[in-house]
Nucleic acid binder design. Structure first.
Lengths: 333, 333
DNA sequence: TCTATTGGTTGGAGCGCTCTAATGCTGTAG
DNA sequence: CTACAGCATTAGAGCGCTCCAACCAATAGA
């Protein structure tokens, strides 16, 4: 239950602690003889370096902290994949922490992450106030993903929600739809740009936008649809704020005896694995999630190693993924 | 970009470093006067303790390491919630790391986690060899979730897959089904117990078990169903190895013009959020995931703080969740 | 022969903290 | 007036490591 230290290895290999340190860090200025002796001793003792002591002594860190606001959302998993890929490539490790979508928990998660003094921090769709982010950014490089910021010291990586919404509207219009409603994401992150993009696109097509207030959940999507049906105000096409919402909308439509896409077309947003399920097969807007992660990690590493200081703002282009929930009004011909 | 140290706080508050340390750890033997002075100085400097230095000096850690084999699986998110809940309660933080279902990456993730010298380690459904786990267990308390082990030094938390499969079979039999096939999970974790439970339950009902080889994905579920249809060997009910597989099976059934549950009943396993979607509404077997996490964290903390040494084996009872994909053969009456 | 140079190796200081033992300082009893 | 608690406070060592400067052959150049 007690791990060997460098001292133990040094003793066993008959060299000094400093030499062991050099070997562990792969220094070229060690004779082959000593190197093998040290490695052998380390192996025998089951020694592996103490990352904290190392980082304390060297005043550097090879760890990137990642705060995931919601572990349940598969969106973040793919972003983390991207971060992990780049970090690993560059010899960095990542530690993850979760905030559970609550500002208080997220704050604590942030504190905890900071207490490890990582080289940098990636915050995935954080809900903490901007001031907390600004404070963190005073201490180390910070990148925000799926959340914008005016703080000039942090980098951001976002998708262009306006473009994404426009893509969806254009697709529906090209199929012949004129009555297209948007179930919006309320206060949710990125809901604003999507809503704006929808409205702008509708207007540019000379159509009347109709924004129905909703949320990022399937229950909310279903509720919104039931409301539309009650008001006898069902459009021929729906643009949901995200995939979950879209799936709820589809359920409610089917419950009401309507067929998708024959009677109503539905478009989601995010292209989660849910949308790709054969059973769901949702037309949706894809965001390059792994690319988000790669860019975030790269941005961090640029600051850490190349000492970049001017902020970077990545705005990635979403793309349309056509599956089987959209068709011309009146059904596929 | 440079964080203040205890020394800085001490200087500013006009006290010694040791006193600051006491205040930071909430020691009662500090006068109110000094305490407020120190806290004020800390606040002004934006000081927060350096977790690594602390853990190095105290030779203890308040961090639990969690290795998640696959971040994309929502199953793990809920287990982590449970771990987090207990850990937070007891003043521990958690750091997460991901292995991406590859033994090599997982090994590296393990190394990385160990290098932080956490108080204990939770491995969620790890795929690394047992020897690697045994080695880790020599250095700190280790708990395995969703993976069994014969290593006597590690604790385990699992669901009783045999019972779960039996629950599903009993449900289908009680509906009147006699031809029930199992799409199995191959080499997947926990696939064995589920398969054994299915076979035993079928036999105990005097029915002929039929195990169809499949995998834990929706594509595999669909493929298995297409195979059964081609062979003209479709049963009246299906027990899938997990929810994903079940959803794929349902798609393939519907593609073939069959109705679920009118023509074929389908039961999943895991009760993921997917199953709960109105659109899917899958009858499935629930595992108490958050409870897995809570038990895992508790087991760890017992070893860490109470010094327990005999291993603990938790085997939790799954339960049946009836939704709308099961009905008597020939359709609901 | 003496001085540089080079490559390998080492002692020691110090990273930011905790912990133990010792210190100073009251206040009360002898 | 000394003695002795009892409490708040502090100096100093040390956690496992890195890093710097010093050191020590062994070789090269003069």
């Amino acid at each position: 239950m007690v791990r060997p230290t460098m001292e133990d290895v040094a003793l066993r290999a008959g060299v000094s602690r400093a030499l062991v340190s050099l070997v562990m860090r792969g220094s070229p200025k060690v004779s082959e003889l000593r190197r093998t002796a040290v490695l052998k001793a380390a192996e025998e003792l089951g020694y592996s370096p103490h990352a904290m002591a190392r980082s304390l002594a060297s005043r550097t860190s090879t760890v990137l902290g990642v705060m995931v606001s919601d572990l349940h959302n598969a969106f973040f998993a793919e972003v983390v994949d991207g971060i992990d890929e780049v970090a690993r490539e560059q010899g960095f490790d990542i530690i993850i922490n979760t905030g559970g979508r609550s500002p208080a928990r997220e704050r604590r998660a942030l504190e905890s992450l900071l207490s490890f003094r990582p080289a940098g921090l990636v915050l995935l769709s954080p809900v903490v106030p901007a001031t907390a982010i600004g404070k963190a950014a005073e201490q180390l490089p910070v990148v925000l993903v799926a959340r914008s910021s005016r703080v000039s010291t942090v980098d951001t990586v976002n998708d262009d929600g306006e473009t994404g919404a426009r893509l969806a509207v254009d697709h529906l219009v090209s199929l012949g739809h004129k009555h297209i409603a948007h179930l919006d994401g309320g206060e949710g992150s990125q809901a604003g740009p999507r809503r704006r993009g929808y409205v702008a696109a509708m207007e540019s097509h000379g159509l009347v936008p109709r924004v129905v207030s909703s949320e990022y959940t399937d229950a909310a999507g279903a509720r919104a649809i039931r409301g539309l049906i009650e008001d006898d105000a069902l459009p021929t096409a729906i643009l949901s704020c995200n995939d979950f919402n879209a799936v709820g909308a589809i359920s409610a439509l089917e419950d009401a005896g309507l067929r998708v896409p024959a009677d109503v077309s539905v478009v989601g947003y995010d292209n989660t694995s849910l949308a790709a399920l054969r059973h769901v097969s949702l037309t949706t807007i894809d965001q390059p999630r792994a690319e988000f992660g790669r860019l975030a990690a790269s941005a961090l590493l640029q600051r850490v190693r190349d000492g970049r200081t001017e902020p970077v703002r990545h705005l990635l282009n979403p793309s349309l993924v056509v599956r089987t929930t959209t068709a011309p009004p009146g059904g596929p011909r």
